[in-house]
């Protein structure tokens, strides 16, 4: 059995192994690019929930009435309208059939334009002590039209011009 066909089985084994490994390498390097799809689902649910709550808080209960949201923003930070806004927002978010969804946290900001054209963003509610900035939070916003002087909001010009401001809420699950 000493002829040149001696190593053929080994050669075929090596060839088959190389083919399989190469394929596996190519396959894995092409399919593992995508991020797993379900990481976006909690974000989507939170964002939808937050947008719904802000929209409903901005809907007056009666024709021609002022909405809850405008009322809270008008009171500003001085009388802690921002905290009331956050609490009401969270109460609405937590509501569900059965027990409350207690793990939700939120932080409210307000963006407005100053006369020099710059846009200023200020926290409207007291900072959450557990907030680290690394939470997987979503940001939902709602436009609000205001009129009159807003005493509680820092750095806003104290002219009584009608203005459009943006209420921003950071919502996350603790």
């Amino acid at each position: 059995m000493v002829n040149d066909s001696g190593q053929l089985y080994t050669m075929e084994g090596v060839a088959a192994g190389v083919i399989m490994l190469l394929t596996a390498y190519i396959v894995i390097s092409t399919t593992s690019i995508y991020t797993p799809g379900d990481t976006h689902i909690p974000d989507m649910q939170l964002e939808q929930l937050g947008s719904d709550v802000l929209a409903m808080m901005d809907t007056p209960d009666r024709e021609g009435g002022t909405s809850q949201l405008v009322g809270f923003v008008k009171n500003g930070t001085e009388t802690c309208g921002g905290n009331d806004l956050r609490n009401e927002f969270l109460t609405n978010c937590k509501m569900r059939a059965g027990d409350e969804d207690t793990k939700l946290r939120a932080q409210v900001y307000l963006s407005y334009r100053r006369t020099d054209g710059t846009v200023n963003t200020t926290p409207l509610s007291l900072p959450d002590p557990e907030f680290t900035g690394r939470e997987n939070a979503v940001r939902v916003t709602r436009w609000v039209q205001l009129d009159g002087i807003l005493p509680g909001i820092p750095d806003i010009e104290h002219s009584s011009r009608p203005r459009a401001v943006l209420v921003e809420v950071l919502l996350w699950r603790a």
């Binding site: 001696g6 190593q7 089985y9 080994t10 050669m11 075929e12 084994g13 090596v14 088959a16 192994g17």
Partner: peptide, 8 residues
């Protein structure tokens, strides 16, 4: 030979 090839 076969053993080596098959093992690989």
């Amino acid at each position: 030979d076969f053993l080596a090839g098959f093992t690989i």
